[in-house]
Design a protein around this nucleic acid. Sequence first.
DNA 1: CTTTTCACAGTCGCGCGGATGGGA
DNA 2: TCCCATCCGCGCGACTGTGAAAAG
Length: 601
Amino acid sequence: MLGGEGESSGYSSAKDAADEKRASPAVDGDEPAGNRYPEHGMPSDRFYIPSTITKHSPETANPCSFIPYTPSGAVYPSSGAARYSSTLHLGSVLPTAGYSSSAAGRSHFSASYQHGQNLGCIYNPYTASGSALSSVALPGTGPGMRAQVYLCNRPLWVKFHRHQTEMIITKQGRRMFPFLSFNIAGLNVTAHYNVFVEVVLADPNHWRFQGGKWVTCGKADNNNQGNKVYIHPESPNTGAHWMRQEISFSKLKLTNNKGTNHNTSQMIVLQSLHKYQPRLHIVEVTEDGVEDNGDVKTQCFTFPENQFIAVTAYQNTDITQLKIDHNPFAKGFRDNYDSMYTAPENDRLTPSPTDSPRAHQIVPGTRYTMQPLFQDQFVNNLPQNRFYNCERAVPQTSSLLSPQTEDGASQRWFVTSMQQGGNSSASSSKLDLTPYEGEYSSSLLPYGIKSLSMQTTHALSYYPDSPFTTMSAGWGSRAGYQTYQRKVPPSLPWSPRPSPTAGFPEESVKVKPQVQDEVTGSEALISSWTETQSSALSPSKADSFSIACKRRRLSLNGPSSEDSPANGKCEELAAATISSPYSKEPPPTKSMSYYPFYTNP
DNA sequence: CTTTTCACAGTCGCGCGGATGGGA
DNA sequence: TCCCATCCGCGCGACTGTGAAAAG
């Protein structure tokens, strides 16, 4: 068991990162290995901080999983390169037709950011030198005021990213899913900031879905017009405000309607079949939202896992399934929804709405929580009799990763990302999901799955305004954790979100290798869950899983060898389904014959 | 043939209005 | 009895992916 250990953030020391690297050969052949990791050897996990920050010692790691995210080299150049050239951007900067630097005032802020020709092409003829982690001071932020950004729902993004995320665009605008959600730290609590998201081209290619995978197809249409910026509706606001709560861009809509003139501020105009990269901008402004002309203080943060291809209709059925499984709005399309909600209390895959009426609030009002460890488990514990089914519609070749990396790596929420390390547009879109492949994918994954798979709220939990968001005492200490174990209904393993404001803290952090945290955390969760959900995993579940396997939609590409039983996902699920939730021993590895319920059609 | 558009069914959040209960 | 707060049910609208038709 673990108490405060498992929940302590997923801090990962530089040494760990180095170990990770050694233990995880690059998967992406097209990516220069040297670019993947920052030369500083810091783990490029999830926190973006300016490279000049030296404060992220283990002692400063935050229990709420604010992991130092060291820009690993070439950060994509902003569309406002000219404007932001003196900001956080590191490495190679693409000279683009950026924004005017003469912004003055909120109105101008909006106007100048929202329109522009050829906005934000982040792709660039990447030069390898860009991977170097440079030490660029933030001119505007001053000493100790460099923002750190945490992608709250990163595990979900990673999950989508593995299959190449697609985002629907419609004339009336479609919300993103997953949506962008960040935690920010390191701001001046009294200063005012505008926070906005910009969506820029991620590469110079036009894409098409062919043969079960995304392939480039000509050059991107570069003269796309229209709004590319979504300003957070709470802008401007104080640093304290931004750091106090999670910053959600759930209302952001994507459209392909260039002529749209309504809801412009909520819509970002994209082109179908182009790859895009959302970026978070934090601009220090005066109290009334006016930017300081002479001293623009802007920071830009890019998470490669946020890349997506805009589509008018889903191409990859894996993505479709992920959306259905995770997006509460698509609940009606879950083919086992009935069983999920009509099964006996102890046997449900997903808690009924009455378990927590607030648990599925779609858009949290002002704050909600996404504790990474739990979150990842939510993400990874969908109804397994339908998730990653053995008859997946698209062979795994469509995914961004090799099959062997499919199963385990992303199950860990401390998946190492290469961040901006890569840079050739294509390679930069890929994450390194393999760091723990050999060591953990086979041993830890089943923990995660079997520990929570039957009890979590799954997609419902993705929208975090759950009752547990207020249980702030339950996450940071052993005692708190025990309290959590005792009180939290098994159906809603939600975790409180430690206040970044209160908690970027140097205290109460158990400095442990993140890997261990993961293990202990998982075990603790398993223990917690299994104690209260003894009947959650029953043989009948395995049967239903098998049946569900057969019910899966057929691949457009026909059966693939990669969909064979040996391939993985189905196996994992079967194994997870079958594994005894009580077992504290490491589950069998994939190599073991452990799938008696699996039936290969 | 590929891509886009549209109508559709299903789910859920929110707001409104009525019913209920407690206190003055 | 009146006032106020709370609870509950209903309807509307927002949102989702699907699938067929239309457009290119």
